[in-house]
Design a protein around this nucleic acid. Sequence first.
DNA 1: CGGGGGTTTGACGAACGTCAATCGGGGTGG
DNA 2: CCACCCCGATTGACGTTCGTCAAACCCCCG
Lengths: 254, 254
Amino acid sequence: MLQQTNSPLEGHREADFRAGVIARRFSALCGLSQGELDLLRKIGRARYATHGPRSMVSALGMRRPAPHYIISGWAAHTREFEDGRRQILHLLLPGDSLSAQLCVPRRQHRIQSLSSLQTVDGEEIWTAACDAHAHPGLSKASALAEAQERAFLFNHIARLGRQNAYERMAHLFLELRFRCAQVGMDQEESIPFPLTQEVLADLLGLSGVHVNRTIQLLRREKTIRLKHRRLYFLNVEALMRASEFDPPKMTHLI
Amino acid sequence: MLQQTNSPLEGHREADFRAGVIARRFSALCGLSQGELDLLRKIGRARYATHGPRSMVSALGMRRPAPHYIISGWAAHTREFEDGRRQILHLLLPGDSLSAQLCVPRRQHRIQSLSSLQTVDGEEIWTAACDAHAHPGLSKASALAEAQERAFLFNHIARLGRQNAYERMAHLFLELRFRCAQVGMDQEESIPFPLTQEVLADLLGLSGVHVNRTIQLLRREKTIRLKHRRLYFLNVEALMRASEFDPPKMTHLI
DNA sequence: CGGGGGTTTGACGAACGTCAATCGGGGTGG
DNA sequence: CCACCCCGATTGACGTTCGTCAAACCCCCG
C-alpha cells in the first residue's frame, strides 16, 4: 500500500515534473526568485512516498512529522460519525500541503487518498518559508496558500448551508476547475476527475443517489460531460450563473 | 453607529477588564510571560471603536487596516447571495480577531455586528507575535488561535453537511459553550446568547421556522433553556450524545 | 465469460422550506 | 404608570427537496 522511492534512480525530467506542481502553485500565488525556484526543484528530486488508492494517509510512511506536499493524486480530509456518516471537510489536490498532525488518524479527523497518491517531505520548504527575509516569495506564497485554503473552506460552508444540490455541484466544479488551472492540470476546458459519485456525495453533503440525478441533469442540459475519470466543461457560463461562483483573487486573501 | 472613545478618561479597572478577554483567550491557548501579559494589558487601555448592533463592521471606523480584536459583543462573517439568501461563515466572539481585509465589505464577504460591538487595534499584538524569539508565548498563541478557528470551520462544515437540524443545534451550542468558557464568559452552565432565531438559521443553514421548532423540542426535553438573551445548559450529556461534539484539544491543533 | 465496483432507475417516505397569520414582551412616549 | 408598538417568536397547513431501499445495469479487468 505504501512504498518509498529513491529518485536519483530516475531521470531529472521526471523530478522536474514533480517539483513543477509545487512551483506552479507557489508561482500562481506570488512571484518567486530563481533561488526559490531552485529550492523547490531540489525538493522534487527528494525521496517521496507513494500511497495506494483508498488508503489512509498516515505519518507512518513519512520520514518525519513535518508538513508534506502532494505531488500527484487527490486526497480528502474527512470526518466520520459513529453511525457511518462521513463528511469530506476539504479536498486536497497536487500542490496542497498535508499538515503533519492530521496524518495521525484520530477519531474524527483523517486523511484518505482518493487515488494513487505521491507526497514529498515539505520540511525544507517550511523552514525556508519561515525566514521571510531570506525567502520573501516562498514566505508570502505559503501564507497565501493558507489564506486560499480558508477561502475554499468558506466556499464549502456556503455551498452546504445555502445552496441546493444543483448549485452545490456547479459551484464545486468551478472551484475544482480553478484549482486545477492553478497547477496546470487543466487542458481545453477539462480536468482530471478521480472522484466517484459516492465521494462526491460525502463532499457535497448529499446522498449518492441524488448526486447521480443531479449529474444526469447537468448532462442532459449539455452543461458538463463526465467520462473516463475526466470532467469536461461544455457551458461554464451556465455553471457560473447557477452557482454565483467568484474566483478568488489574491488581493482578497490574507 | 460608530464612535471613537479615548479610554484614559476611564478607570483602569475597566481597561483591565477589556484587556482581560484577549489575555484569557491567549492564556487558554498557551502560557504567557508576565511581559506578554503586560503588553496585552496595554492594548486594553488603547483607543477602541464601538459599532452599533446590526451594523456593518467596516475599516472606516478603524484607525488603520490592521487586524483588530473584539473585546465585547458578537459579530458574524457572512456571505450573501444575490437572491437574498445568507450564510454565516463564522461567528466571532470576544477575543477573536477580525482580519483587516474582511473589514472592507465586498460582494460576497462582510462582517456584521450581531450586538453592540467593541474592537481594538491589534497592530501591536500582531507585530509582537511575529517576533517568535522575543514573544514566544504570543507567537504560539496566535498560531493556535488560527488553528482553532480552522477547527471551528471544520465543525461547521461537518454540521451543515451531515447533521440534521437537532444535531446541528446541539453541536453548535456545545461549541459556543466551549468558546465562551475559554474567555470566561460562562457562568454556572449558562452563556450569553445574543443571536436571534433568524441569525441562528443563517448560521445553521436552516429556515427560521425550523430553528424555532427545533428549539421548542430542546426546551420540551429540558435539555436547554433560552431566555433573556441567555442560553442555559440543563443537560449537557444529552447534547453531547446527540451531536458527537469533540472539544478541541490544543495538542490536536497546529 | 464471469465478477465486482460503480452507476442508474423507480417508488416511497421523511426532513425541511414556505406562506401567512397570530402571539408576546419589553422598550418608548405620553 | 400605562398604553402602544414593533420586532421577534410561535403555530399550522401545505409543498418541495432530498434520503432510503432495492433492483437492475454497465463497464472494465482478469
